[in-house]
Design a protein around this nucleic acid. Structure first.
Lengths: 204, 204
DNA sequence: AAAAGAAGTGAAGCACTGTTCAGAGTTTCA
DNA sequence: TGAAACTCTGAACAGTGCTTCACTTCTTTT
């Protein structure tokens, strides 16, 4: 055995991979999937195009990794809010607010996750991502129905509608919002979402 | 003057162009924009790839024409329903139903119009398409508020939400629906949309 | 220090597709 | 009918961008 990777070397490689994923995420958030060529991503990470293939077998694999990381963070954050304290209606409201606020804070990434044109592999991931969002909302809607806070309804459909509605509003939010309008936008969105789920307006 | 296009010849050319657009629409509905290459479309229309350029200056121009025709039909149909008889709440309900029914009857086309990955030129058209859908719904929501049938709200946001919600539900409708579930799906969608706009459940 | 092995490089290779164009086929008109 | 004008064809061309690979550079081990 004339060569064995030393722990430091392994850390260096792992760090390089992380750096690549991080830079690729930035590039995608800035210019979208279509413009995020291997060359552009490699340039941004400060490595040669060929070196990308030291870490990923293909561009698609890198793209999927980028998507999964970003989407996973969002699903996790939303899940924590929706599983947190409070009655189901309150949690739905907070969930919508968190969803919207995070998307507005990084619109490029939100667009990339929700709607930007992408290769088929990323498209498949996106379907899964939206299904997970749906599942999270559907769970709380069902809780709300069971608790008598929401009327009888198909929770899956309401959950899908919430995902679609928020996405639609955020991806093209009627002109670039500034600080003041962002608050109003989120308030309107939350109110709309609660109506959509059938929450009693008097209670909310 | 040794050659002037005869009316019959002009009709023939126009018909060939129409045929090309029609076939291209079918191809897009079946395999999506990404797979609808010039060769595939030309083959489907029974002409050579080069002949496409007798009718359109570029593939993008053909794609835009296909999108505009299909989207235009949908906007027109929805507009007729939303501007038709009945109070605003009834019209919103019927509009959602028509939107959904048409999308479910031709899911491939609906997906192409609403969500399928496409080149930038088509993406721009799609934004316009969604804005027109929004505008139609927003108008009726405002009427509903003015008539006291709907609570105070940002009509633009509700309209965007309706568009997004319906699109989300239809593009990936929780498994392929059969005849019986289609009816239930549309009923649930309509109910959700009316809640979303804040219509009084007792009235609906 | 030197050999062995791995990572990094970047230009060339390659596949895929939109577009062009010279020639063949068709239609018009004197 | 024959010449001119136009349409149609499909193979060749060209742009784009992912991927490969011979080579260089760096790290490890003896």
């Amino acid at each position: 055995m004339a060569y064995r990777k030393t722990p430091a070397e392994l850390r260096r490689l792992e760090a390089a991979r992380e750096h690549l994923v991080a830079r690729a995420t930035s590039v995608v958030a800035e210019v979208g999937w279509a413009q995020a060529s291997v060359t552009a991503v490699a340039d941004s990470a400060g490595i040669a195009a060929g070196s990308v293939y030291q870490h990923f077998p293909s561009k698609a694999a890198l793209a999927v990794e980028v998507f999964r990381r970003a989407a996973g963070r969002e699903v996790e954050v939303l899940g924590e809010v929706l599983h947190g304290p409070g009655d189901p209606v309150e949690r739905i409201g907070r969930g919508v607010e968190v969803f919207a606020r995070r998307a507005l804070e990084n619109r490029g990434l939100a667009y990339a996750l929700l709607a930007a044109p992408a290769e088929p592999a990323v498209g498949a991931e996106r379907l899964d991502f939206r299904r997970r969002y749906r599942a999270l909302f559907a769970e709380v809607v069902h809780e709300g129905i069971a608790a008598g806070l929401l009327p009888e309804q198909n929770g899956e459909i309401t959950a899908a509608a919430l995902t679609g509605a928020i996405g639609e509003v955020l991806v093209d939010p009627l002109g670039t919002p500034d600080e003041t309008t962002t608050g109003a936008l989120i308030a309107e969105l939350t109110a709309m979402a609660l109506r959509c789920a059938g929450a009693d307006p008097a209670t909310a």
